[in-house]
Design a protein around this nucleic acid. Structure first.
Lengths: 247, 247
DNA sequence: CATATTATTGGCCAACAGCCACTATATAGC
DNA sequence: GCTATATAGTGGCTGTTGGCCAATAATATG
């Protein structure tokens, strides 16, 4: 193949355009909690292919400005949400010959969960993007195989949540344990037992009590409010829930 | 951008070579257990770049014959081991501008664990490939960022093993519980408590007793031999071990 | 003041993991 | 044979944790 030449000579001769390569994209499933629903950010495609359909934010790598794969993901999210998403989790990479009409295509799927507030006003200004409640997404016409990608990300989110204290950093602070439990339940799509939930969360020592607040619904016993303890970042990947989920 | 044209017209005009795209490859960390060590398959590179260094088996997608990303992985493994690997797990996808001297490069890393015997003779005939004990790999000159890829796959293997009954299908059958425990310990890189191990494995009801055999070392009480029960495939992803690991 | 509503705690039981000593059954050497 | 040694397998205790659900606390409403 390249006998008898040095590596420098080889690189000199090499031109990537001499070879066929697939399309390479990045897609991001960005989730948030708002008004007691789990929501996902979708973008209405303005270009072919699949013009007019809803899609996950994402796109091609900019070989000049991006130096890491997740730089592309961060850049695309910044364009659509106006904020920098710190924790991007890679979910899966899907590649085949039929998912994009333009030909062989590979996409790296990322996932993140962000608080709703900081993004809300900005997204209104991006006319082709909006938050969709996750339950309504299956009624939408989605581009490419994005219905499948949404499903993969949603499953990962369920699992991830069971293993981490992730929702703590998504709620408006301070929050009550009831609110925190509701957040966990939304993300995990499961019902948690109240006493077990409180035991685990409090034993983990990741919360700090900061006073009292009004209960859900305005009436009833006042509730204790909490915020993440200073050292709670380090517990971000602590296992908090086991099999303590019913469906 | 493409105003006023139909999707068919758009696709007609479209040529992927008009756009810059990164190199896209697939790499596979193939593990096996042999002679009480965890081993990984490596290939000595015959071409630039990094000619002469050891690398994970892998390579470029064949846009004509491969229809799925993991087809590429399976094809490459078949060339090197002579066998079809049924269970390929995707570990991670790494992409950046500096991992390959040829330019921006993305690789999808897969992982699998196979029994040693069926591959052994074939690999001898592939002169550039061999099994390496995992502990010796860090002394080798590895190509690209494959040292990092090996590390990622090894970590995933540890976790995966803790959650599945994977080693059952890798041992020569029938096997004793002592042998099974040793396999788990090698894969998880941890010490397991004998009684707890046996309790969990036997309670899972995934094994079938099939007689007696000689103990390890030839002397001592004879050992019960087991093989996977018929329904054990469905338990492939059952959680078998929790935090019952010391180091 | 009675009732409804939400928050929080008490307390029991069953399951299970860690621990380690004890028993069982073989081989090797004398 | 007898003893030492090696490996396999079990008994049984303890502490932790999760599921369950009833009891108690503290407020709002009419």
């Amino acid at each position: 193949m390249n006998q008898g030449i040095t590596e420098a000579q080889f690189l000199d001769q090499y031109n990537p355009k001499d070879y066929d390569s697939p399309l390479m994209t990045v897609d991001i499933a960005l989730f948030t909690l708002h008004e007691s629903t789990l929501q996902i950010l979708l973008v209405e495609r303005g270009d072919h292919p699949h013009k007019g359909r809803w899609a996950l934010p994402g796109g091609f790598i900019d070989l000049k400005s991006d130096t890491e794969l997740h730089d592309t993901a961060k850049r695309k999210l910044r364009e659509k949400t106006g904020v920098d998403v710190p924790l991007l989790e890679q979910v899966n990479t899907i590649g085949n010959a039929r998912r994009d009409p333009r030909g062989w295509s590979v996409t790296a799927l990322y996932m993140a969960l962000v608080p709703h507030a900081p993004t809300a006003e900005f997204i209104e200004t991006v006319k082709d993007a909006r938050w969709w409640p996750i339950d309504e997404v299956r009624k939408l016409p989605l581009a490419f195989d994005h219905a499948e990608l949404v499903h993969l990300a949603r499953e990962r989110l369920k699992n991830k949540t069971a293993y981490t204290v992730l929702p703590i950093h998504v709620l408006k602070q301070p929050f009550s344990l009831t609110q925190l439990q509701q957040a966990f339940e939304l993300l995990m799509d499961a019902t948690l037992e109240k006493k077990s939930f409180r035991r685990r969360i409090l034993n983990a020592e990741i919360l700090e009590e900061v006073g009292e607040g009004v209960p859900e619904g305005g009436r009833g016993r006042p509730t204790a409010l909490y915020r993440p303890a200073k050292n709670s970042e380090q517990y971000l990947f602590t296992r908090v829930f086991g099999d303590a989920v019913s469906s």
